[in-house]
Design a protein around this nucleic acid. Structure first.
Lengths: 340, 340
DNA sequence: CTGTTAGCGCTTTCAT
DNA sequence: ATGAAAGCGCTAACAG
């Protein structure tokens, strides 16, 4: 309420008849101060409503207790899960999170990185707006020149040289494709070639390429019997809906539809529903769990990844690199699991 | 890669043969510097990879471009939506977000606030772990003593004296109850008293009380015909499931079940499903949208609130108060909409 | 155990 | 249009 010029350690020092440094010590390294004085100081700090100034401290000892998280979207529940894990674990190690939702805008990503650098963030968990090879953001040099630890999560830059925690995308694609072969009867009625529709992310996205590669490998032996059609999108719901709608209009119902992430799969399901095509007319599979559907007895077979674990691992790796800047760059791969 | 002692404005100054202050000005108030010099300075800054030090700046001018967001959970999609809005709008005004997920732990909430104060955050959007009257956190004094602008979001502290953006909970409860009366045939078969099961949050939670109050008002004329049973929980899924399961075992299937938030409603549905009770045997209604269900043709009538709008309003209000510390404390109410 | 000194990087006077 | 000096709040490094 009161105007209250900010209370500093000097105020406390005056209050208890000591000098700044003693107060500083009492508050930060209590063991270096006589218990009696310490208590008086702590008491005074409380009374005066002292709040340490992170800027002053950060300026002096150029290290911060800040970890930056830069992600393309909070909408995606999979990302929300990873962020939850990061946040929880960061807290345990006494780091605060500075979160940037870049909204898929490369410029916002760039300013986010700069802000983090200016705040001397100790570490950065980065999931860039794009994992296409020609996305080579200009902030990379600055990031490299700084001594901030960096771990990429899920999406990775090409040749960035930073550590990463990624999903086993090849495996996921393969696994789903095998499931289709074995369980969902693809390529088992020989009257005509089966069509598998894969609804993907951007054409050059690494994640999309890897997942597709997995599909192709799994189906390579069936090359004569299965045609793979691919629709390119951007991992969000809306384009998936319109694209699938369009495809259905043009080519009819394929034998199976594979959505390369959660939102895409939902989009495909939506398009099917709009077109009045029942779940029994085609087989829909995906990557990432569709939340809560089990409650309604709806099953969409999919490879699910443990986002919480991925986030936690990213943070662990980051801590390792923060402790030891020489630590080897490494890529951890999180493998999913088929849930039918 | 290089060792790279940090580049400061002094380095730039040396590089271009000017003094610190000129460099500072060139970078912050370009109009005060001759265009030629300015360009040379900007050029040098780029070359040397200069990154401004937010701590030094913050220390000097005690204002920051930081807005803190403290919330009990990122799990809740409704909160994720609000945070998305906050983040997007903050960015537009050139503020960075410092996000704290308190995991419903009051101590974490308290340290989050202290961290924000120490970082001189310009504003704080707070959704505390509890909105029960006896939750009077100790950080309140510090918050009041500081000059940080505060806006509460959704959950509010009792008598805190801070502005807030809240939902029209009374209306939501009323609206759903009226729907039950009019459409869902509650109190229309007179053979026996109808039972309405409300699955709520904590017993003393303001939001729960308000929503319940709405229900009671709406049904007051039917006091003789409708019994309202209430189960207390904590707005999360798991307890809702077990409580409803238990209730069903004890009292059988009620005429209708009203989940006071999204996760609770899902929990109730899950319990019903586990008990093998079909959607036709009771009427389930809720507050907050159950995402994506329309894709599967599942409808759960509910009052939905626009989380994005609520978040955006909270940030707007915060900006108002940051600009004018004298601005009047105010409470904005966001009304939902019944979706059937 | 406590104090002195000095300086982190930047910006605000007030001069020139 | 540019510069000199001073200081924001805090903490290393060295004394005592």
């Amino acid at each position: 309420m009161a105007a209250s010029r900010k209370v500093t350690i000097a105020d406390i020092a005056r209050h208890v008849g000591m000098t700044n440094i003693t107060v500083s010590r009492a508050l930060n390294k209590p063991e270096l101060v006589r218990p009696a004085t310490r208590e008086r100081i702590e008491q005074a700090a409380l009374e005066l409503g002292y709040v340490p100034n992170a800027f002053a401290r950060g300026l002096k000892r150029s290290d911060s207790r800040l970890i930056g998280v830069v992600t393309a979207s909070l909408d995606n529940p999979f990302y929300a899960e990873m962020i939850k894990a990061i946040s929880r674990h960061a807290k345990q190690h006494d780091y605060a999170i500075m979160l940037f939702d870049t909204d898929s805008d490369p410029r916002l990503e760039s300013t986010a990185i700069d802000t983090l650098l200016s705040y001397q963030a100790a570490g950065l968990i980065l999931s860039p707006v794009s994992d296409e090879p020609d996305y080579q953001p200009d902030y990379l040099v600055r990031l490299k020149a700084s001594d901030i630890a960096v771990v990429q999560l899920d999406r990775t830059l090409h040749d960035s040289g930073f550590s990463a925690v990624v999903l086993d995308n090849l495996w996921a694609g393969e696994r789903v494709a095998h499931y289709l072969l074995e369980e969902a009867l693809i390529a088992q009625r020989r009257t005509e070639r089966d069509r598998l529709l894969v609804v993907a992310g951007p054409e050059r996205s690494r994640i999309t390429c890897e997942r597709l590669e997995g599909v192709r490998e799994a189906l390579s032996a069936q090359a004569g019997e299965v045609t793979i059609d691919v629709l390119w999108g951007d991992y969000t719901l809306a384009p998936a809906v319109t694209q699938v709608r369009d495809y259905l209009g043009r080519h009819g119902v394929p034998r199976a539809i594979f959505g390369l992430n959660q939102l895409i799969t939902l989009g495909a399901l939506k398009a099917l529903r709009e077109a009045g095509i029942g779940r029994d007319q085609t087989c829909v599979v995906g990557i990432d769990r569709l939340p809560y559907l089990e409650i309604f007895d709806i099953t969409v077979p999919c490879v699910v990844h443990d986002g919480y674990r991925a986030g936690a691992q990213a943070l662990e790796q980051l801590l390792v690199q923060m402790r030891d800047p020489q630590a080897e760059v490494c890529t951890l791969t999180v493998r999913g699991e088929l849930v039918t």
